[in-house]
């Protein structure tokens, strides 16, 4: 303890932290505080008439039975996007890890979707699934399955889940692939010599060793599904049919930016912040315990 290196004066440390603190305050704390303040106001879009309404915006929200429906849709949507995005990325990473020739090619191709703008992603998938022109819906019709996501809520949800997850697969793939390469080959070989088959090795060796990566990706993917998917959903279904693909973030966007209802939109983003904060706390408290570093 005596020999610990100490920097003279606390101000230098503070000074070095200042840029990061400034960014945090400016881009995270300040907007969050603004949203909190805004959520207690009733205001016209131009800011000409502002009134303090306390928790009115929140109580209006929670009295709306449809809002609860949107919360449920969001949870389902986020769970599906995360599961599909991470599952397929893990599968692809494991397969690329086995490939002997053309590794670079697969890597490049699999990373490409990450560079595509969200609304373009939606348009691509819409082309595939367009009820009259898309070739996947055409094939489905040939197989006797009628695809029309404009009317069928389940199909619409499937469409936005696939499009949103597809966009995230590249990112997940990169991390899983790096994680797989960090696993010492000697461990795998030792297990193989002990008679463990590929599936057994994957389940009992690779997966546990990947758990830090998986945990990190779980957090990132859930945040992605909650916050970053509205452009895809907006372009693909606009929340419809009915409310079957309306997520919380889409509702914030539609009512705040398109509908100019600032009070309600702010209240909704505060609720969203609370939900995601809660989810993250749960993840770090309970899920992280199972992670082996």
């Amino acid at each position: 303890m005596q020999n610990r290196i100490r920097f003279p004066g606390g101000w230098l440390g503070f000074l070095l932290m200042l840029p990061q603190l400034a960014i945090t305050v400016l881009f995270f704390v300040w907007p969050a505080a603004q949203a909190l303040w805004q959520s207690t106001q009733s205001q016209d879009p131009f800011g000409l008439a502002t009134r303090f309404v306390g928790v009115d915006n929140f109580s209006a929200l929670f009295q709306d039975p449809l809002y609860l429906g949107t919360v449920k849709t969001t949870l389902l949507f986020s769970a599906l996007v995360t599961a599909l995005g991470m599952g397929s990325a893990l599968l692809l990473a494991a397969m690329v890890n086995q490939v002997r020739f053309g590794k670079r090619f697969y890597q490049t191709v699999l990373i490409a979707p990450y560079a595509i703008a969200p609304s373009i992603v939606a348009v691509l998938w819409l082309f595939l699934f367009n009820p009259s022109l898309g070739w996947i819906s055409y094939l489905l019709r040939g197989a006797g399955y009628e695809w029309n996501h404009a009317l069928n809520g389940g199909q619409a949800l499937a469409l936005v889940v696939m499009a949103s997850a597809w966009k995230q697969v590249s990112y997940n793939f990169l991390f899983f692939y790096a994680g797989l390469q960090a696993i010492p080959a000697s461990l795998i070989e030792a297990a193989a010599m002990d008679g463990a088959g590929p599936l057994r090795r994957f389940r009992d060796l690779v997966l546990p060793l990947l758990s830090p990566t998986s945990f990190f990706l779980l957090v990132v993917n859930l945040v992605y599904a909650f916050f970053d998917t509205f452009a895809v959903v907006d372009a693909a279904t606009g929340g419809g049919p009915g409310k079957s693909t309306e997520t919380l973030i889409l509702k914030v966007y539609l009512e705040g930016f398109k509908g100019l209802d600032l009070g309600s939109s702010a209240a909704q983003s505060v609720v969203l912040m609370a939900i995601v904060g809660l989810l993250t706390v749960i993840q770090f408290r309970y899920v992280e315990r199972k992670v082996q570093y």
Binding site: A150, L151, N152, G153, G238, G240, G242
Partner: peptide, 10 residues
């Protein structure tokens, strides 16, 4: 209106 009409059409 869109949401409600969609629930009629389906």
């Amino acid at each position: 209106v869109d949401e409600e009409l969609e629930s009629v059409w389906n």
